[in-house]
Amino acid sequence: MAAMVNQINGAARRIPTWVVYIVLLLPVPFLVYQGFTGGLGRDPVKGLEHELGQWALKLIIAGLAITPLRRFAGVNLIRFRRAVGLATFSYVCLHFAVWLFLDVQIWSQIWADIVKRPYVTIGFAAFVAMIPLALTSNNWSIRKLGPAWRKLHKLTYLAAVLGGVHYIWLVKGIQIEPLVYMSIIVGLLALRLRWPKRVTA
């Protein structure tokens, strides 16, 4: 186990972060290609919208897993966390853009949906919560903000939960997949709770 962890850590140190950006964003051109060629089913707009949203959730989960992985397994992928976070935001932006321009299309309806439909409101809130995170995902901001930077980036937890609720709420009936995503998000957040040390009498 320890040997494997060392191997992973060693390999992670050798991979340049730009490679991670490219790998994480590779699904985008692939999805667009599929959208034009029938690979996303008979409703490519919904297909693209859902795929992008699911990628955003997968990546936010990956980002949330990085700290527990180091703490509990000793696997250190911290240097890729910014790439994972910015890639997540990219998918959220694309998901939002597809919804705006290809799905709803009608401007008067877009704002009505955002304020009147709770699942849209929640998804939009997750997007808004991620904007300051994306804007401060650079070395200059970390230096400038100091300890406040860590506090600010706890917004990730909120964005992840909102994203999970958004998915549960938008499907018809009770479906398994959104509940699986939500359980993983809640589980990863629970791992961060610092339980009070039990006092034995």
Binding site: F36, R42, D43, P44, L102, Q109, L170
Partner: peptide, 22 residues
């Protein structure tokens, strides 16, 4: 009459590809 989670005022006809108009 809206569905509580989305408007029913318009619809997307299937079969028009990525850029089908509502």
């Amino acid at each position: 009459v809206s569905h509580p989670r989305w408007s029913q005022a318009s619809e997307r006809p299937l079969g028009g590809g990525l850029f089908a108009r509502r």
